[in-house]
Design a protein around this nucleic acid. Sequence first.
DNA 1: TGGAAACCTTGAAGCCGCTACAGTGTCAAG
DNA 2: CTTGACACTGTAGCGGCTTCAAGGTTTCCA
Lengths: 147, 147
Amino acid sequence: MKIGELGQTTGVEVETIRYYEKVGILPTPARTAGNYRHYGNQHVDRLNFVRRCRSLDMKLDEIRVLLQFRDTPESNCGKVNQLLDEHIGHVGERIAALTQLEQDLRKLRRQCHKVQKVKDCGILAEIAQAANRIGGRVGKSHIAGAH
Amino acid sequence: MKIGELGQTTGVEVETIRYYEKVGILPTPARTAGNYRHYGNQHVDRLNFVRRCRSLDMKLDEIRVLLQFRDTPESNCGKVNQLLDEHIGHVGERIAALTQLEQDLRKLRRQCHKVQKVKDCGILAEIAQAANRIGGRVGKSHIAGAH
DNA sequence: TGGAAACCTTGAAGCCGCTACAGTGTCAAG
DNA sequence: CTTGACACTGTAGCGGCTTCAAGGTTTCCA
């Protein structure tokens, strides 16, 4: 099948498939006479595997590792378990950090209950104050974005 | 003060300060005879404000909006409240998504209890199966990375 | 058979919020 | 007067795509 059909079958955008090839997640496929990429069922399986891993929020680096194990069925799977445990750990840390963040934000939100002049708004005042309280002391947080 | 001192005072890296200037978060400061950026206390306050917002995981776009309100004390703060509410909403969604993800990962982890051959490992088998079950149906998830 | 439409190709640039260079200039201390 | 710490500009890189430009190939229909 051609790249468009592979995309249809797996629900992955064509550009993403080419990107996966470029970064070594998918092998370079055979080409037709007209230089079109030509795929088979093994590509569908592999791409579905990748997609499932991405839906579990794994990085491409982690997925590369898992694919390597998938490609060597006689090797032992201890590292797979370890990788997954670490990943679960990261997710747990993130949940904790975001939960703390949510509390901070709700507390901040309580500083302003009505629409008023900006200069009287408790939210902006509180941000400014907190900013100066922590001035110079905070390193980078280990949580990533919420967007 | 020079940029290095501003960085020290606020705990922000010099490159980040220049970056903030480039993207319009900080105003272009005065320059010394030797073309060094020259800052005052108002810059410290503004940068601290920005940093506090970042520690609350706001995007630079959102921070730009808040700064604009901060700069016009007579305007009304309804939009500030709204921005914050939306931000809290995003964080809440993320927590929910990550919590679901954590459950999925723990369930997956239970598929393999010991170190064995990859070909018998329940985890890789489960990923492959789940991948084909969902094949072609899933759009992109709204959760971002856990790393 | 011809011509349009749908598909495919490569390569580069853009997104976010920095971070890390390279190559040069300025300034203060000893 | 030299050394070293700081400052300057500009560019490239991170991840995981997404989007675009400028073309080549195939397919379909009249």
